[in-house]
Simulated scan of single mutants.
Amino acid sequence: MILIGIDTGVKTGFAHSIDGVLQDVSTQTILSAQDRVLEIRDEAAQSDVKLVVCIEDVRKRTWVDHSIGKERLKGVGSVTRDCSIWQEFCERNGLRHILVPPSNIDTKRSAEDFEMITGWTARTSGHARDAGMMIYKYHRLIDKGVVDVPAPKPIKKKGSK
């Protein structure tokens, strides 16, 4: 099984694993990350391997610290928009995906902790580590059947009900 983790934002955290082993943990633009997802999808299709995209969905956040200021709140708004963009991207491309609440991700790990937990030794950003921690956790949850991954929804054509 291939998992792709997306930590949404201007600097998109990107990670992907094969059978729970990290292959890439990086920071990318949203468009380059989407291109990479499609490349991995095509590679997975050739091998008939199951692929799941895990997207951190800040729309499921139950609280926002009101002391963070107007500029940070604008950033929260853009990340919320990015979640919608990723969801639509997956739906348009027929990708199996799950929307993961931030509270279900072990985020904000130091590089040292991330290396100790995952074994990934290359340099990483905080966004990349968040994406990596998400798929590190969700690989086990999906594998054990704790988390169900729905089949991709059919794409709705414009004008149809």
Rank of each mutant, 00 (worst) to 15 (best):
I2P: 00
L3H: 05
I4Y: 04
I4M: 05
I4E: 07
I4T: 06
G5T: 07
G5R: 07
I6Y: 08
T8L: 06
T8Q: 14
G9L: 07
K11R: 14
T12R: 04
G13D: 10
F14Y: 15
H16K: 08
H16E: 12
I18D: 10
D19S: 14
V21T: 14
L22N: 06
Q23C: 14
D24T: 15
D24S: 12
V25G: 09
V25H: 05
S26N: 12
Q28T: 06
T29Y: 01
I30L: 11
L31H: 10
L31I: 10
S32L: 10
A33E: 05
A33W: 08
Q34G: 02
D35V: 01
R36T: 11
R36N: 12
R36K: 15
V37P: 02
V37G: 02
L38G: 02
E39P: 00
R41S: 06
D42M: 01
A44L: 00
A45I: 01
S47R: 13
S47F: 02
D48P: 00
V49D: 12
K50N: 12
K50C: 01
L51V: 03
L51R: 06
V52N: 06
V53M: 02
C54P: 06
E56W: 10
D57M: 11
R59M: 05
K60I: 01
T62S: 11
W63L: 03
H66N: 13
S67Y: 05
G69E: 06
G69L: 07
K70G: 02
K70Q: 08
E71W: 01
R72S: 13
K74F: 01
V76H: 04
V76S: 00
V76R: 04
S78L: 05
V79T: 15
V79S: 12
T80Y: 04
T80E: 03
T80V: 07
D82Q: 11
D82W: 02
C83K: 05
S84Y: 09
I85L: 12
Q87G: 02
C90F: 07
C90P: 06
R92L: 15
N93T: 03
H97C: 14
V100R: 04
V100K: 09
P101M: 03
P101Q: 04
P102E: 10
S103F: 01
S103W: 02
N104I: 00
N104C: 13
T107S: 15
K108Y: 04
R109H: 10
S110W: 08
A111K: 15
E112Y: 09
E112R: 15
D113R: 13
F114P: 04
F114L: 09
E115N: 14
M116Y: 13
I117Y: 06
I117Q: 08
T118D: 10
G119E: 12
T121A: 14
A122P: 00
R123P: 00
H127D: 15
H127F: 05
A128Q: 09
G132I: 11
M133Y: 07
M134Y: 09
M134Q: 11
I135M: 08
Y136I: 01
Y136P: 01
K137W: 02
L141C: 05
L141P: 03
I142C: 06
D143K: 14
K144E: 15
K144D: 13
K144Y: 05
K144R: 14
G145E: 07
G145W: 09
V146W: 04
V147I: 15
D148F: 13
V149Y: 05
K153T: 13
P154H: 12
P154I: 12
I155N: 08
K156E: 14
K157A: 13
K158M: 12
G159R: 11
G159E: 13
